[in-house]
């Protein structure tokens, strides 16, 4: 940690190379001066002043009141943090989380901290196996977003085309507008083509459903998986893969970026060159032997380990499609009853 004051310091996310004390002092000074400015300006505002009318007085007063509120809040918060170490703050936060009334609303079960809850994965019973897994990123949402964009873009381009044609008809052509309309119309045509293609894909490929015999998943145990794929198509290949992703969120300057990396992939099932007929979906039940010695599902503020089953298909005359079904993996070790750590904060 730097001991001396520096004008420039490196910063990545929440980590700084500069002195913490100087940083806190600067923060307190900023919020303190904000509060001071708000208070003085508020006092000046309510003093007799012929230039400010009663209507604008209230508006300016509200702005100044918010400055006072932000300044006072920030100043008090900074002072509270000065004498508190990171561990103590985290311990106090943990103690608040352990209040029984809040435990159900937390993202992790109490016995497995930082493992995501699996409530949304077990609330839908399957037809053949215990649970029907939900799908991430349903194609209907993509269809809706692309459809809305296409509609708005086409409406805008139509207005521009009508304006351009009208100017031609009255004998006063606007060349700038015509040049502008050509690329806009090209984007519109591409958007319509892309949306129609998505629509055809969604209707021809049909819904994919995946069921699992038990949940949550424990490494080293065996499970059954049941896949149904509806539609009317000739399939070149259909696979189910077990995939593990790491996800890291970090700040770069003022941007927040997320990087994902696949760290594990295992093909569970493959079938090639077959036909799915309307009303007769492709069905397949297979074993899923979950590997041992792998990391459980993990979720913290900036980092995550996610497990999922991915169904990938390659269809004749169509592009590839991919459907993702999340899983929650618990640590392999048999859980023991939780004994609360008697933290003294």
């Amino acid at each position: 940690m730097a001991r001396r004051f520096r004008f420039w310091e490196k910063k990545r996310g929440d980590r700084r190379t500069g002195s913490k004390m100087v940083g806190s002092a600067g923060e307190a000074a900023f919020f303190g001066s904000l509060f001071l400015f708000g208070t003085i300006a508020m006092a000046a505002l309510w003093a007799p002043n012929p230039w400010i009318t009663t209507g604008s007085k209230w508006l300016v007063g509200m702005v100044l009141a918010s400055l006072m509120f932000i300044g006072a809040g920030g100043f008090i918060y900074t002072l509270l943090l000065v004498g508190t170490t990171t561990e103590r703050r985290r311990a106090l936060a943990k103690r608040a989380r352990d209040i029984d009334l809040l435990t159900d609303a937390l993202p992790s079960p109490r016995d497995f901290p930082n493992v995501p809850r699996d409530v949304n994965l077990t609330n839908s019973p399957g037809i053949k196996l215990a649970y029907r897994l939900p799908i991430i990123g349903s194609p209907s949402w993509r269809l809706l977003v692309v459809g809305t964009f296409t509609l708005l873009w086409t409406a805008m381009v139509s207005v521009l085309i009508i304006l351009a044609v009208r100017k031609y008809l009255v004998g006063n052509p606007d060349w700038y507008l015509t040049v502008l309309v050509i690329p806009f119309a090209a984007v519109g045509v591409w958007a319509i083509y892309y949306w129609l293609r998505l629509l055809l894909l969604a209707t021809a490929i049909g819904p994919t459903s995946l069921e699992i015999s038990d949940h949550p998943i424990y490494p080293g145990r065996d499970y059954r998986v049941y896949l149904t794929q509806a539609g009317a198509l000739r399939v070149q290949s259909l696979t189910i893969s077990l995939v593990c992703l790491e996800e890291a969120t970090y700040r770069q300057g003022t941007d927040t970026r997320t990087e994902r990396r696949r760290v594990f992939e295992d093909v569970v099932f493959t079938r090639e060159n077959f036909e799915i007929l309307p009303g007769i979906p492709c069905e397949h039940e297979c074993d899923l032997q979950f590997p041992t010695g792998v990391m459980h599902s993990f979720q913290s503020d900036h980092n995550a380990v996610q497990w999922r089953l991915v169904v990938r298909g390659k269809v004749e005359r169509w592009s590839k499609f991919e459907r993702v079904f999340p899983l929650v993996v618990y640590p392999a070790h048999q859980p023991r009853p939780v004994i609360d750590a008697p933290s003294v904060a």
Binding site: E87, E259, H302, N303
Partner: peptide, 9 residues
């Protein structure tokens, strides 16, 4: 690692 640092006490 690459992401922001998280901590749990």
């Amino acid at each position: 690692g690459k992401g922001g640092e998280d901590m749990g006490v």
